[in-house]
Design a protein around this nucleic acid. Structure first.
Lengths: 197, 197
DNA sequence: TCCACATGTGAAACATTGTGTCAGAGTAGA
DNA sequence: TCTACTCTGACACAATGTTTCACATGTGGA
């Protein structure tokens, strides 16, 4: 059985560091050569490990690129928890997404490349949507907790969480379509406003 | 080059019939044995054709199940076009989804099985989300056309289309979680209402 | 020091998927 | 009848992801 408490041992830290390193090398190579033109063998070789080891850490070729988004779900949830309880759900969700906006602002070039890569590669796009769908229950639960102690997670919370994530998606689509020239937070505002009838 | 006008020849009709037949056999087998426990070879054998032929018609193992949803996007768009121009976007989208509700009402048992299958199989879930994302531009364009002749497709239209599809998704999640006991159109209403602030 | 045990790594085999090629069977039409 | 055209199945192929095994490394205790 797994231990009841999820403690982070030094070994886990080391593993995560290796994983991040492998993902970084993989992303650089994919960025240069294109996702379809690179094999797992290439990625492993570039990282200086065997194919076995690479897959042991990363899990799959898709994950090599998408692990960059691993933390996003929890980050948005964390930001959502930090919003004042008086704020309505929709505003709180919009503000929580500012956490991600900040990431895109810090390095727009890289962000544009990886976002395009995911959008243009069907396999990556599909997996990314699935991963993003996994954030929904967490956000919905956080909304429920904000609402009150005994509040169960309702369908309404799930719908709002899902809609907020779709707004992010739509905004990113328009952003990449404009080659990153349009203002991403502004696009996100526009998407959010479109659902406030 | 492909012909400029997409005409439907008798051969295309025959091809689609074969495709539907293969998909039906494949779905039945997957339903009984489980997606992971069945290979493309099994599906082809069950349908009485070679693996080559099966993949030629269906494209991939995932598509064998997901082709059941192929027409949904265009059906919803069609229903959306049929809504009165005076109706606001959100109401029109909700009513357009009644087309799908009708499908679920006609055969709730099968609908429950296939919906669960897609939800519980990561590969299917991912591909289905990607396919559903493909409906978004069509719906957004339809919303724009409803708005007026020269109206371009705006980010707001895309956001509403995306949100409506997510409402469908959320409603289906709760529906399957209730073993199909809850009223699906009612759940969809609830999800839509959660976004009408 | 020596031993036992756990952990990380690479090599290889394996089942499966999806693509591409090719030859033969069947068919409709000139 | 001859000729294109299409469909089919067989096969080869590259690649993915899983599993198993052997080897190295290192660590703690007797």
């Amino acid at each position: 059985m797994t231990p009841a408490v999820t403690r982070t041992s030094t070994r886990d830290i080391a593993r995560n560091a290796v994983r991040a390193e492998l993902a970084q090398v993989a992303f650089d190579l994919v960025r240069r050569e294109g996702y379809e033109n690179v094999t797992v063998n290439d990625l492993a070789t570039a990282a200086g490990v065997s194919r076995s080891t690479f897959l042991r850490y990363i899990g799959s070729k898709e994950e090599a690129v998408l692990s960059a988004f691993d933390a996003h779900g929890e980050q948005v949830a964390e930001a959502l928890r930090a919003r004042p309880a008086t704020e309505d759900d929709w505003t709180a969700l919009r503000r929580a997404l500012d956490t991600l906006m900040e990431r895109y602002r810090q390095d727009p070039q890289s962000a544009l490349v990886i976002t395009r890569l995911v959008q243009d590669t069907p396999a990556l796009c599909a997996r990314h949507l699935e991963k993003q769908k996994g954030w929904r229950p967490t956000l919905a639960k956080t909304l429920a907790e904000r609402a009150g102690e005994a509040e169960p997670t309702t369908l309404a919370h799930a719908a709002r969480a899902a809609a907020a994530l779709e707004c992010l998606d739509v905004a990113l689509d328009h952003w990449t379509a404009s080659d990153g020239r349009l203002d991403l937070p502004g696009l996100l505002d526009e998407a959010f406003a479109a659902l406030a009838f």
